[in-house]
């Protein structure tokens, strides 16, 4: 999962420490993290090159936005507007006491889409809040969207079976295989324990 983590420049010094913690926690969760805290880097550069080639916004190539928005940076409103328009899963974190800076107050609450999750945190609750929200994303519709391309060579017999299984249904062969694997994941207790441990 590719995460763009934006940390408010105008936040207080104590918040900056939390921002660095957030970035570390996100990296520890196994995601690729690109952040304005360290804007250069091979991944960011290659994403920008790809965006230029495709004529797209580089943010289109990011899976999740995480915004630490305790300050009043104009970029926060921009990223939130982008997230709403592009239906990008977004975690918007504000330190307790900084809610006055929230630009989402200018939207009617019903216009804030469910893929934009807003959370007020305090230093002790930062870690569980972040992981709880990442967990929410893992269960979200987005997490189930197949975005990774994978080449699998199969035997003629498997191909025949897949054809027979999906013929005259709305399912493609790929859909059928994805569902089989999803069922396996749901039933695999060992794997679920492993995921939980990794996130905590």
């Amino acid at each position: 999962m590719k995460i763009y983590f934006f940390a408010s420049h105008t936040a207080r010094e104590s918040t900056r420490q939390n921002q660095n913690r957030m970035r570390k926690l996100l990296e520890q969760s196994g995601s690729v993290v690109i952040s304005n805290l360290n804007p250069t880097g091979e991944i960011a550069e290659s994403l920008m090159e790809k965006a230029e080639e495709l004529g797209q916004s580089v943010l289109d190539q990011i899976d999740v936005l995480v915004i630490e928005g305790s300050g009043s940076d104009p970029e926060i409103g921009y990223l939130l507007a982008y997230a709403i328009s592009a239906k990008k899963p977004t975690l918007y974190l504000m330190e307790k006491g900084s809610q006055a800076n929230n630009p989402l107050v200018f939207l009617a609450s019903k216009k804030i889409p469910s893929h934009v999750v807003v959370k007020i945190y305090s230093t002790p609750t930062l870690e569980p809040s972040l992981y709880e929200m990442l967990g929410q994303l893992e269960d979200s519709e987005f997490a189930g969207a197949p975005t990774i391309k994978f080449t699998l060579r199969i035997t003629h017999q498997i191909e025949q079976y897949l054809h027979w299984k999906t013929h005259n249904t709305n399912l493609s062969k790929a859909d059928y295989l994805r569902r089989l694997i999803e069922d396996l994941i749901k039933k695999d207790e060992e794997y679920r324990k492993y995921r939980k441990k990794r996130i905590q």
């Binding site: 104009p74 409103g77 921009y78 939130l80 507007a81 982008y82 709403i84 328009s85 630009p103 989402l104 200018f106 939207l107 009617a108 216009k111």
Partner: peptide
């Protein structure tokens, strides 16, 4: 385009 209100 309600999201514009978030910016300005």
């Amino acid at each position: 385009v309600p999201e514009l209100a978030v910016i300005s």
